[in-house]
Nucleic acid binder design. Sequence first.
DNA 1: CGATGATTGAACTCATGGGTACAAGCTATT
DNA 2: AATAGCTTGTACCCATGAGTTCAATCATCG
Lengths: 213, 213
Amino acid sequence: MSTIESMTITRGQADRRQAILEGAFTVFARRGYAQACVKEVAAEAGVAKPTVYNHLNDKATLFRQSVQAAAQVVLDERLAALEPLKEPDDLHATLEDVGHRLLQLHTDDRSCALRRLLYAEITQFPDLIDIVVENGPHRLTQALADRLARLTLAGRLRANDPDQAAEQLIALLTGPLEARSRMGTRQIDDAELHQLARAAIRTFLATFGTADG
Amino acid sequence: MSTIESMTITRGQADRRQAILEGAFTVFARRGYAQACVKEVAAEAGVAKPTVYNHLNDKATLFRQSVQAAAQVVLDERLAALEPLKEPDDLHATLEDVGHRLLQLHTDDRSCALRRLLYAEITQFPDLIDIVVENGPHRLTQALADRLARLTLAGRLRANDPDQAAEQLIALLTGPLEARSRMGTRQIDDAELHQLARAAIRTFLATFGTADG
DNA sequence: CGATGATTGAACTCATGGGTACAAGCTATT
DNA sequence: AATAGCTTGTACCCATGAGTTCAATCATCG
């Protein structure tokens, strides 16, 4: 079938492009933008240097595309982590679980590398702000605010300003990480993440909780 | 007097070194480490390129020293901002004022540039962690925890774990900034900083406050 | 005034790395 | 089998910038 074969062709090309973008992100994460060389990206992706330039115009687009792809993955993971808040049985326990999951995602290698890269190159690539930041933290806060609003309507929370509540919950969760992880260079073990999540939820519920969990 | 004159000599040399370090930080903040060139640093400091190499061995030490100097300034400013907590009259109002001051310092140009530079180059300069992070955020949290502990002993707060309380207070204050300032690229007006400080202190006191302010 | 030492500008060396050219090989459609 | 399009390795061009050298200049001190 020509359709299947053409599928395999385009699949093969798409796979190659995908491999290049993933290799590029790996190398950029390891070295930073300026120190990363395209030769190393090609090696990481298992292709030749001219092939890289065949798929992406230049180093800058290579960077933009790879960062954008990584950001998409990271955002999807976080949005998925909010799912349990749709039908929480034990609200306190569910909040702790979701918080813990968010902390795990926040501290994983890809996420830390992405954050470092954005901070590093945001002045050189200001267009990444719109592409990544607006579609990243902002949409996560929005999605969380939606959940908190529903829970408030159901009488299980007192978050009259759900946007602010979501903002503060995320701050309570991830804020302490920056110092503790020494800017993402130290791994934090799971027990410590649990502690942080419990402490964050305790403070959050002291302000926004109701009598019945 | 030879002492005075030798003072002026060393003063002159020290001033030149100081000018070079400040110019270096300005240029590094503007371009990032790799994109910054020593020629531009020399121009910013108003000296010739060989003079830079006469005071600092190479570009790496130039970077380390300039970042370290900037971090010292930033830390001192923040520690000074905690002073009002020593003898608070109206505790709620004092906390809001201190919080607001911390937010102002957190969003000023030098502070944002320093944060970006650290995130950017921390993998290339891992020794900066010990020099800067330990003496920066960590010592601020410690100093704040000291204040909260005193206030708890005086019966004006209920921060039985002052380290955690300090950590969460700083998180409530500065966490929302990252998203709102779009990683330090957007200026936030003072009214918005006031709002953020008020919201943070409200949540903080809901957990750690007592009946009598 | 003369000497010592820092400063200056300009030219230079050298390594790095982005990006391209080209010839040879591989793959898939006809 | 044959043609067309990617891919590959290698070699190359060229811009950038770190770090140095050197002769000339300036400031400071005895």
